[in-house]
Design a protein around this nucleic acid. Structure first.
Lengths: 197, 197, 197, 197
DNA sequence: AATGAATGAGGGTTCATTCAT
DNA sequence: TATGAATGAACCCTCATTCAT
């Protein structure tokens, strides 16, 4: 039951996770611009050389943070089943997530910006976004079938609007109050039985 | 006949502008993370010491870029008057601006993120956003009065939704196609005479 | 039944040798400049900590390599007796050794250079060189007695010339062809019965 | 009369030369193994950043040192004309050079070793060596024509022997006394009118 | 006898900034 | 106004070495 040797060096998964967590916080607080490996190591309570023992390069650490952030984010996307109106509950879940973990929002914003200059990251974000888009569209269809919202609109366009609104929460320049208002408006439109009913 | 900002000597205003422009491009292309004063100076065709002659510090240069970007951005916000449906035309104008000047979108995204760590910038963004919000809300009212959209909703909430959608265009992780879909959906909702009419 | 060097515990002699061998190869390929204990350990198939178990310090490992290299080198110097013209056969033997084990030549070059900054190594090299010098001088005398070369010259000077020529083969900047030419010339001079005979 | 701008940045040739000189000394004293840019900068009396102002990378500095060393070395090679026995005087000149500038010898040794791992340097050394070889061979021919040495031997082989002897002086493990003996022997052989006369 | 994990002390390089001209 | 030259402070990364197991 020995750990597999080779090109994936060390184990001690907890220390590894501490470092990723520290880097995550660093990015949330100071952005990629202000991310310093020494700070990360210090924040995780280890020597800078130890950081490089787990992550050969800063880039490798950042990749791990990206994986961590995306996982944390995706876990919210999956509709938790059950309710008759999963769409509304999904939107509320995202809002709650962003409210309760402002760091995650900040990091997602940083990742979004960085994806413009990082093809690998761009690919990841594209895939995640498309998956998210599909989920929302499916939830829309389901809500239409359940009769909780009006059937009239192109579901891709509606899904795009919902996603744009939700993602805008990753921009810290938009005050929480405004985000809530936007979501409330969205919610209202989605809820009503339909314009021409 | 513009007054020179701060205590900086009068100096050549055009050279100043070249530098701001170069820094603006730099931020658009490589983000704050990748902004190097030397690159800016080289891009403007001057020595690095010359840059510091005009802008004593990198921060000062960034302030100037912020001013430049905000001015460039605000000039789009002011409704160009006339038409019966200024709201729709405003939305379209913003989309067109972002499409035609992707640099401006990228920089606005960078500024939005940076505002989380830069109180001065946060204040500027807040003010601009509130002004923009008011403009949109007024356009909504006007559209209601003109009968082109339904009167039923809280105008602050509707304005917040519109702004969220528009601002989401500053996130490069959202493909242009999706942004267009979102805006089309928005447009559709805004255009129709009203849900229950 | 070799006694362990220094205060180091007895330990596995073969593992020890593997490490020395790996370090030897490392020096031959990348010089002292490029010698990394981690590479040595990896090359010997052991953990870096294991290397330090056998050799408390990098210096200690290097000492062992020096011993290894010198032993390997010296074993060629001892004239294999018999022949009437041992000097010529000795020269040929050295040339063959350098040709067949280019690593040994490279390491000897590295050691020669290092001896300028390493008094301990300098002493070793000096002793080896002097022993070698004596051997060659004796072979010269013997050849004179045997009548195979002319008696006329100062044997120390002739020995110095032979050694200089042989040692120059440790310099990789001299192409093998040139070394062969030099040795052929040497051989020729040594062989002939004497200038004025 | 402006200095040419572009990719060959700064001028101040004297500061540049100081740095090369300091690096040269560093290599002579501690070898490539012990060459530290910080030491070089300190030795030249400038900040480490200043060193990188003149040489973007350590490699670039080393290239410059190589150029410097080769130039200094080559200047000795060119026969100074005149005398009837230029060959002997050339050999003496090289010996004198090495004696008076032991640093140059040490650096040449370092370069010779390094050339095994540095193709660019290898090319330089090969060319220099071949040029030197040709010079010596020509001096041999000339000496034969002048009747000062015997005509009998293959001039390439004789030249190779002379060069090997001279280059062996770059190995610090050979004591000066031995080098002198070798050269004296060489000199003696070269001087005599010819073996069979 | 052996190793995974950790570290202190640098090592080369970069960057905003300054200064003399 | 403008610049070549210079610098202090960091930054990422490496390496020999150590320690607990």
């Amino acid at each position: 039951m020995k750990a597999p040797a080779g090109s994936v060096p060390p184990s001690n998964e907890s220390r590894r996770h501490d470092l990723v967590q520290a880097a995550f916080r660093g990015i949330a607080e100071r952005g990629f611009e202000g991310l310093r490996t020494r700070d990360v190591a210090a924040d995780a309570g280890v020597n800078i050389a130890t950081l490089h023992y787990y992550f050969p390069t800063k880039e490798a650490l950042i990749r791990a943070v990206i994986g961590h952030a995306m996982a944390r984010f995706r876990s919210t996307l999956s509709p938790d089943g059950g309710s008759d109106d999963q769409l509304a509950s999904h939107v509320r879940a995202v809002r709650t997530l962003m409210r309760r973990q402002p760091e995650l929002g900040a990091v997602m914003g940083e990742l979004a910006l960085r994806s413009a200059r990082d093809p690998g990251l761009a690919r990841i974000m594209r895939k995640t976004n498309e998956a998210w888009h599909r989920i929302i569209r499916d939830l829309l269809h389901q809500a239409v079938r359940a009769g909780s919202i009006a059937p009239e609109r192109d579901s891709d366009e509606a899904a795009a609007l919902i996603m744009a609104t939700l993602m805008s929460m990753a921009l810290p320049s938009i005050p929480a109050t405004r985000s809530d208002q936007a979501i409330r408006e969205l919610d209202h439109w989605l809820r009503r039985p339909g314009p021409r009913s």
